[in-house]
């Protein structure tokens, strides 16, 4: 029980609970199943990518190029299914394939260039974005085949009055991705190796871990989820635009960091990441429901990021003075 109070997730959960209570009292529409389902559906693609980012951060890395990866996957997926037809499985397969390929390229570069991954992925972000804009000419894609526009609902709830609350495919994928990532990190040797690599790279190398393979996996997994997330996004909005996902990279990183993952690597949990995404989603929803001008959203988000990372850093500093310990979730 005492360890609970030390956990970042606990405080984040507490803040979210306060926000939820506040919003339930001040608005009628917040705590309804429709609103919550819709809210989480609209954040599901960011959530899927956040799971990938979590794994990258735990390994001690960082990826800023995943939004460009996602957009490239989206364009190639959309043009292929429009030209040659196909089905939903093929759409996801294309998205995931392109994502993995670009992710592996990042992994290769990160391993061979011994520079902070942020700089390397800034370079690949520029490269991917430039090529994307050059080949797509910034065109939007609307004319999806009919089968792509059907709603794919996994579970449908009905209340007594006959209202339908569907769990859409993007939301379902988000939940599956969280469970799979959580399992991977917590119960597989691979996952524990990723924590170890992020905690102390040199120690992991001397233990005989294959750092090259781990790095490739981590960035490949990020690319894979960026690809999957991009198809989920296309399903949700039914358009592909060059600027729909690009520019959201810092939002995703902020959500994951709010969820307790450290940029230094070695710590972070799936539950924290989910809470981080929930926090960002609820703030944006609150701004709309309370009728506050939407400009305030960024101010709130910025203030919360600064406060939360400052508290974490300060606590870390205090703890360092008391004792040195390795934090594995």
């Amino acid at each position: 029980m005492s360890s609970l109070f030390k956990r970042n997730e606990f405080y984040l959960g507490l803040i979210i609970l306060c926000l939820v209570i506040f919003l339930s009292i001040t608005t009628n529409s917040f705590l309804t199943i429709e609103n919550l389902l819709e809210l989480f559906t609209s954040y599901s693609f960011l959530g899927i990518m956040a799971a990938g980012m979590l794994v990258v951060l735990i390994s001690g890395g960082l990826d800023l190029s995943f939004t460009a990866t996602a957009t490239i996957s989206q364009y190639i997926m959309a043009t292929t299914i429009i030209k040659y037809g196909g089905n939903l499985f093929i759409a996801f397969l294309i998205g995931a394939g392109i994502g993995i390929a670009l992710g592996l390229l990042n992994g290769l570069l990160v391993h061979y260039i011994k520079v902070h991954p942020m700089i390397i992925t800034i370079a690949t972000l520029n490269l991917f974005k430039g090529l994307l804009m050059f080949f797509s000419k910034g065109k939007w894609i609307y004319n999806f085949p009919l089968w792509f526009s059907e709603p794919y609902d996994i579970m449908v709830f009905k209340n007594s009055e006959g209202y339908i609350y569907p769990i859409s495919l993007p939301l379902f994928i988000f939940i599956v991705v969280l469970i799979v990532t959580g399992f991977l990190l917590k119960y597989t040797i691979l996952g524990r190796k990723i924590y170890a690599m992020g905690g102390n790279k040199e120690a992991a190398r001397r233990m005989g871990f294959n750092l090259f393979a781990l790095t490739l996996f981590v960035y490949g997994y990020m690319g894979f989820l960026a690809g999957i997330g991009s198809v989920a996004h296309a399903l949700m909005v039914q358009t592909v635009a060059p600027n729909a996902i690009i520019g959201k990279e810092l939002d995703v990183i902020a959500a994951v960091v709010l969820g307790g993952a450290s940029l230094l690597g070695g710590s972070g949990t799936v539950i924290g990441t989910f809470l981080g995404i929930a926090m960002v989603a609820i703030i944006s929803n609150a701004v709309i429901l309370l009728g506050i001008p939407s400009y305030w959203y960024m101010i709130f988000l910025g203030a919360i990021i600064i406060t939360s990372v400052s508290i974490t850093a300060y606590n870390y500093k205090l703890n360092m003075r008391k004792e040195a310990e390795i934090d594995v979730a």
Partner: peptide, 27 residues
């Protein structure tokens, strides 16, 4: 003094400052 990593600290201030800029100019 607080010891936040520079990426995160300036990411936060960047978001905050952009918000203030948009708020004051309304875009």
């Amino acid at each position: 003094y607080i010891g936040v990593s520079p990426i995160l600290a300036t990411l936060g201030t960047m978001t905050l400052l952009n918000g203030i800029s948009i708020l004051t100019t309304k875009g």
